[in-house]
């Protein structure tokens, strides 16, 4: 197969790999993922170990410096990054899944009983102050691991997705090819799967990115309030510790700024990918 044919068939992919925002976003994100994957292998320390003297700025021995007690910040960051990515992955997946299913179903049956019920539920979850609910929920689970945290965060993150997906489904539903399938008496499930879902793939992907970001930020907020995982380490916990131990006031900028920047960069990079993909999937935007 000729290269040209390949690109012609996968037009979107071509625009994706040639979109500057996507390239930049993917590069940064992959770099951070690489840090999470290889960092723990590279570092000679354990994240709970007293690796050296306290208050040490970045140096050859301690790339990101040390904490007040002499733990290695680099080690904490790379291990923490793993859990944070995992939370984002788990919570983002759960929240997207719930949101998509609820949105699809209620959009497909718009105006009928399932739609009414699901949308009422969605609205309920939407107006309940999410962090508040998270605080209440997480305060009563004895020990919280990463999975628990992901579920808690996801539980309050899905409503907007459900609403957005519902309206997308609505607009797709009224398009002609769906009506054709209906006329041909195709089973409901097949219509959803083959026509609507397939056409929404790009949309789903972007929803997922937004959920990934949102859930990570929610979990970091919870961790700051001391309601994060009760064991292990995560970027939010690194930051919470830095705050609790007065890192910034004591001049240990490396302990506060570096983990926060990495987290921010990671989320920004995903937003870049998101915006870039938006341009890819909506050809009209490419002219910008």
């Amino acid at each position: 197969m000729a290269v040209k044919d390949f690109w012609k068939r996968h037009e979107n992919l071509y625009f994706a790999v040639s979109n500057k925002k996507v390239i930049l976003g993917v590069t940064v994100f992959l770099a951070i993922v690489a840090l999470a994957i290889f960092g723990p292998m590279v570092t000679p320390y354990d994240y709970e170990e007293f690796a050296g003297r306290g208050y040490q700025p970045p140096s050859k021995e301690h790339w990101f410096g040390t904490t007040i007690m002499g733990r290695d910040v680099f080690t904490q960051v790379v291990f923490g990054l793993r859990s944070t990515l995992l939370v984002g992955f788990l919570a983002g997946t759960i929240a997207s899944a719930i949101g998509l299913v609820v949105g699809f179903v209620s959009g497909f049956f718009s105006g009928k009983a399932p739609d009414e019920g699901l949308m009422a539920l969605t609205n309920i979850f939407m107006v309940i102050p999410s962090l508040t609910l998270l605080i209440i929920l997480s305060a009563y689970l004895p020990y919280r691991g990463i999975a628990t945290q992901a579920i808690i965060v996801a539980a309050t993150a899905w409503p907007w997705t459900a609403r957005a997906v519902r309206s997308q489904t609505l607009s797709l539903k009224s398009q002609e090819f769906v009506n054709l399938s209906r006329i041909s008496a195709a089973p409901t499930f097949r219509i959803i799967r083959e026509d609507i879902a397939a056409n929404m793939f790009s949309y789903v992907f972007m929803v997922y990115i937004l959920q990934f970001n949102g859930t990570i930020l929610s979990s970091v907020g919870l961790e700051f309030l001391g309601l994060g995982p009760t064991r292990g380490i995560s970027l939010g916990l690194v930051l919470q510790n830095a705050v609790n131990w007065n890192a910034l006031h004591l001049g240990m900028w490396w302990w506060t700024i570096i983990p926060g920047l990495i987290l921010t960069l990671m989320i920004v990079s995903l937003y870049f990918i998101n915006t870039g993909l938006d341009e890819v999937f909506n050809p009209r935007l490419r002219e910008m």
């Binding site: 939010g236 705050v243 700024i257 987290l263 989320i267 920004v268």
Partner: peptide, 15 residues
């Protein structure tokens, strides 16, 4: 804009 919306709020506020 992206930076503002992506930074963990408490971290940003603290800085």
């Amino acid at each position: 804009f992206y930076f503002l919306t992506s930074s963990p709020y408490f971290w940003f506020a603290l800085v």
